[in-house]
């Protein structure tokens, strides 16, 4: 694609070309696939390493979730009296938090790919995308555990005749899970590529994620937003996702097909931009850290 017209095209099959920059869309996903063993290794290392020698061990997977849920139920539900469209407020908040936590940790961990791994990246080559991918796997596992806990609470409420209406739409949730991962990866890649040059973005990401949560219908339903403002909220790709989660399990919330379509398209664009920026940054980021 980038060969000069004068030179005859060389046969470079079998050669790895190390050049200043590759093709714009050359994400080398095939190479990433060859390194899938490594993705699993890092995934395993993350899990084992983060919970050995802690008193509560694996309970740390659910402790933040439980306490945040209680906190939100008390502060926003009981004190703030923000309505939940008739859904049980405990489940309402818990589901929102579980989905949001998964996305937020994908985002924040992907965003520190370069700065957090500069030691290992400076010593050995492997496709740099291995790191964010293994991170997303680890987060999926955390999500699975937290989601399991949610199901326990959900079952309890259901058996006691609470107003929950699980329906067939749960089948799209795995897709939404992947979409959140992709969105987190995309934005995380953009941020991590930018932080190789602008360090202060790393400081902003924690704060920014928190602000984003309050704009993402985690602590209130979309129906509480005045109609004229809703379009703006739909442009936040996380809003339709969280609303869908609630709709599938609790039967409340506003979800339309085009909301999900907008969200999916935005996620795809962000992922694409993220991958481009990431593959450009990975070639020379070692020179600037």
């Amino acid at each position: 694609m980038s060969s000069e017209p004068i030179e005859p095209k060389e046969d470079l099959s079998g050669w790895t070309v190390l050049a200043p920059r590759g093709g714009l869309l050359d994400f080398r996903l095939g190479e990433l696939w060859r390194y899938r063993d490594l993705i699993l290794r890092f995934f395993r290392r993350d899990i084992v390493a983060s919970y050995t020698q802690t008193i509560l061990g694996p309970f740390w997977f659910v402790i933040p979730q439980i306490f945040t849920t209680i906190m939100f139920t008390v502060v926003f539900g009981k004190i703030g009296k923000i309505g939940t469209d008739g859904m049980p407020s405990m489940l309402f908040y818990m589901l929102g938090i579980t989905a949001w936590n998964y996305f937020a940790s994908c985002l924040s961990r992907c965003a520190t790919t370069f700065s957090g791994n500069s030691g290992i990246f400076g010593k050995v080559y492997f496709p740099r995308l291995v790191m964010p991918c293994s991170t997303i796997l680890a987060n999926m596992m955390t999500f699975a555990i937290q989601f399991g806990l949610f199901l326990v609470f959900f079952g309890f409420y259901w058996l006691h005749g609470a107003a929950v209406h699980p329906n067939w739409r749960v089948v799209i949730l795995p897709i939404l899970l992947l979409q959140m991962g992709a969105l987190g990866l995309g934005i995380g890649c953009i941020v991590s590529a930018l932080t190789t040059r602008y360090r202060d973005l790393a400081l902003g990401i924690t704060f920014g994620t928190q602000l984003w949560m309050y704009a993402s219908c985690v602590v209130y339903p979309l129906s509480q937003i005045p109609k004229e403002w809703r379009l703006l909220f739909i442009l936040n790709p996380m809003v339709p996702i969280i609303e869908s989660f609630r709709f599938a399990f609790l039967g409340g919330g506003i979800v339309e097909i085009w909301h999900l379509a907008v969200s999916a398209v935005l996620s795809a664009i962000l992922l694409f931009v993220g991958l481009i920026m990431f593959s450009r940054a990975e070639k020379t980021f070692m020179d600037t850290v």
């Binding site: 470079l12 200043p20 080559y125 070639k283 020379t284």
Partner: peptide, 30 residues
């Protein structure tokens, strides 16, 4: 392949292992 050249190019044929340190990725808890 830790960093890319600014100009020119390098071509490599075959599987490369580079040992710039020993024990890359070792984790104390494992």
């Amino acid at each position: 392949r830790i960093t890319a050249p600014t100009e020119g190019r390098a071509l490599i044929k075959g599987r490369v292992a580079s040992l710039l340190e020993v024990g890359t990725g070792f984790h104390a808890e494992l």
